[in-house]
Structures are given as C-alpha cells and as structure tokens.
C-alpha cells in the first residue's frame, strides 16, 4: 500500500519495531522489556515476509490450485528460522528472570539497581 509515495507496509514495520524498542529501553519491568524485544522481533519478521510478497501472488507451494506468480520462498524460510531462534532466546531470558525474582524478590530494574 502506498501513501504519499511512501511504502506503508514497510513504514509500519519500522513503527512496530520502534514501539518494541521503546518498551525495551524505557520500561523498568524485565518482563515488559522482554515483551518489547518480542514485538521488535515479530516486526523484523514482518519486514522479511513483506519483502518476499509479489502482486497477486500465491504461496510457493506448487500443487494443483495455485498458479504463478509465486511469493519468494527464501524469505519465508529465513523467517521460520528466525521464529525458532526468537523462542529460544525468549526461553533463556525467562529462565533468567525467574532466577532474578527468586534471588532478589523483584524484577524491576529500578529496584535491582538500588540493591548493594
């Protein structure tokens, strides 16, 4: 979709990325930070999927019922890998957050910084 000559799909991705980044840098709660990171990740995936689209294209599955042009399969494969990587990073981060809470009793960065 074009608006004022700008590619709106791409710009939207940057907006989502920035919402995530803002959460990551400005929120004090570690879980909120992690949610922000996930929002950013999904935004980048959306960017990659969007870059592989083609006007009036079908999914790149060459069976009866689909016809050329097809969307590019490579960005989709990249995103699949990316999603799996993202969930791995999230799992490790959550395990760390649980540890921090068990030890300090808080997951607010503001309070963690004041501890000795």
């Amino acid at each position: 979709m074009l608006l004022f000559g700008l590619d709106l799909d791409y710009v939207l991705v940057v907006v989502l990325f920035c919402v995530g980044l803002y959460m990551l840098v400005s929120k004090s709660n570690l879980l909120k930070k992690l949610l922000g990171l996930n929002v950013m990740e999904t935004a980048v995936f959306a960017f990659i999927v969007t870059s592989g689209m083609i006007e009036g294209g079908d999914p790149p599955i060459l069976v009866a019922g689909t016809a050329a042009p097809y969307a590019s399969p490579i960005p989709q494969a990249m995103v699949l890998t990316g999603i799996v990587v993202a969930v791995s990073v999230t799992a490790v981060a959550l395990a760390l957050i649980v540890q921090i809470h068990a030890h300090f009793g808080t997951i607010e960065v503001d309070e963690l910084k004041e501890l000795p």
């Binding site: 799909d9 791409y10 969007t50 870059s51 006007e55 590019s72 490579i74």
Partner: peptide, 16 residues
C-alpha cells in the same frame, strides 16, 4: 533504509 528499497510487490524486484 526501508523506503529506498525496491517496491516489494513488483515482479521485477531483485528478490524475484
């Protein structure tokens, strides 16, 4: 960076 990329829908974009 993103607005200067080739339009993503076009069949002649480098990605296709």
């Amino acid at each position: 960076g993103v607005v200067n990329l080739p339009p993503h829908d076009a069949p002649d974009a480098p990605i296709h």
